[in-house]
Design a protein around this nucleic acid. Structure first.
Lengths: 233, 233
DNA sequence: CAATGTGAACCTTTTCACAGCA
DNA sequence: TGCTGTGAAAAGGTTCACATTG
């Protein structure tokens, strides 16, 4: 926990700015698991059971939830509805987020159509492409605009977050323009390392990198198996 | 580090079973940065410069590379070509990997067309879909097969890795069948928690979760700004 | 002399184990 | 009695700082 000011000075006011990053990354997983449970009519769930559904172990789950406060009942478990509220609140999902998608190719289109966004309060308010043949078409109810109109459209639609599904070489340029236009967070699918000012949040998803990591572990698992087979003989 | 006997005795040749996960996750990033440098005709690079391009700090980079062995020259830096070789070798990219993509919707199509795969030794050898209207079409030179033929096609094509770009509710079933058919690693884009036997590698990319994490940090950054503004007044 | 390679310090995250409460 | 909430220990990862070396 981010202990209050203790160390040297007296600034104690921030006792509550301390959800660890690792925990933040798991809260959305719990949220999805809880939604599933809620749909199935489950009212109350133990840390053991929720952990199972979420794919983590139960002490990790309890520790994570403890950073949000004490919302469980000893001897019983957690009330699904209460947990959903608390996690949503902590993740900042009580406000709606407007998202602009850059690149209306297959990836951009897939993202625009992805139903998981809307259900968490993310609204796709704008799509952009550089290809004039695509500009003017509609994807999932959203008009594709020319990248030339980036500044105007961002301003008009009040987009907070950007999703970059554009070719690597142009990613930094579009990123810069989006930041200048007021974007606060960027999810980058382009295979390039972006530079952003420190008040802008940046996350990256790289498909090729994920496969490479997977290949490494698969290879090692195969190698381990050989070693074990040898040891047995 | 891993288990091999202490570094003094005879069995030294396998000092290599100990690349930390965090390092493995960054090696592909270095590999991409090095490829860019190589294209630009760079022969030798310092840890400082490579770190800059890769978006990490230089001591982290040096520590990471040290797990692969000593391939740098003090006072000079690293030879780009040598590093590319060493990293590829360690990641298991010296062998080719055959990939099957499940789901030929926009996401599956985007993945199939992604050029970053081929250049790292990943070949898309099969695509599947449940929609009979799509089965029989060709995506990026690969014939889309019916999901009914999963076992036959996996066997014929010798696919090692699977990419799941299918709806959440059917993901587990397809996963089970793919595993039974001999798949060694799965990259899951479906919004569900999959169960796999422990000899199968599993990684997950969840678009909605990435946006939620982004939103959290963006919200917190905004809150911090307010606090700072208040303190100044 | 410039830049690597690496112990040691430091910080974060996970796991353990059990006290405390409904 | 059963399950949460949490200190404390262990494991894992990052940063520091500098001896080492081409």
């Amino acid at each position: 926990m981010a202990k209050p000011g203790t160390d040297k000075d007296g600034t104690v006011f921030d006792a509550e700015r301390g959800i660890p990053d690792a925990t933040v990354a798991r809260l959305p997983v719990y949220l999805r698991a809880l939604s599933t449970l809620a749909e199935d009519g489950v009212i109350t769930v133990s840390s053991e059971d929720l952990a199972e559904v979420a794919g983590v172990n139960s002490s990790k789950l309890r520790k994570d939830l403890s950073y949000l406060g004490s919302y469980g009942t000893r001897g019983v478990g957690y009330e699904v509805k209460v947990l959903v509220e608390q996690i949503s609140e902590n993740l900042g999902l009580s406000q709606d987020w407007n998202v602009a998608i850059f690149g209306a190719g297959n990836l951009g289109t897939a993202l625009a159509q992805y139903s998981g966004f809307a259900s968490r309060g993310f609204t796709v308010v704008a799509m952009f492409d550089a290809d004039e043949a695509i500009v003017g078409t509609t994807v999932s109810g959203v008009l594709v605009r020319s990248i030339d109109d980036l500044e105007t459209v961002i301003d008009q639609t009040g987009a907070h977050l950007a999703v970059l599904a554009v070719p690597g070489p142009v990613a930094q340029e579009i990123c810069d323009r989006a930041v200048a236009a007021g974007i606060r967070g960027i999810l980058n699918f382009a295979p390039s390392v972006l530079q952003v000012p420190d008040w802008v949040q940046l996350r990256k998803v790289d498909l090729s990198i994920e496969l490479q990591i997977l290949a490494f572990h698969a290879q090692r698992a195969a190698a381990d198996e050989l070693v074990m087979a040898k040891e047995l003989s």
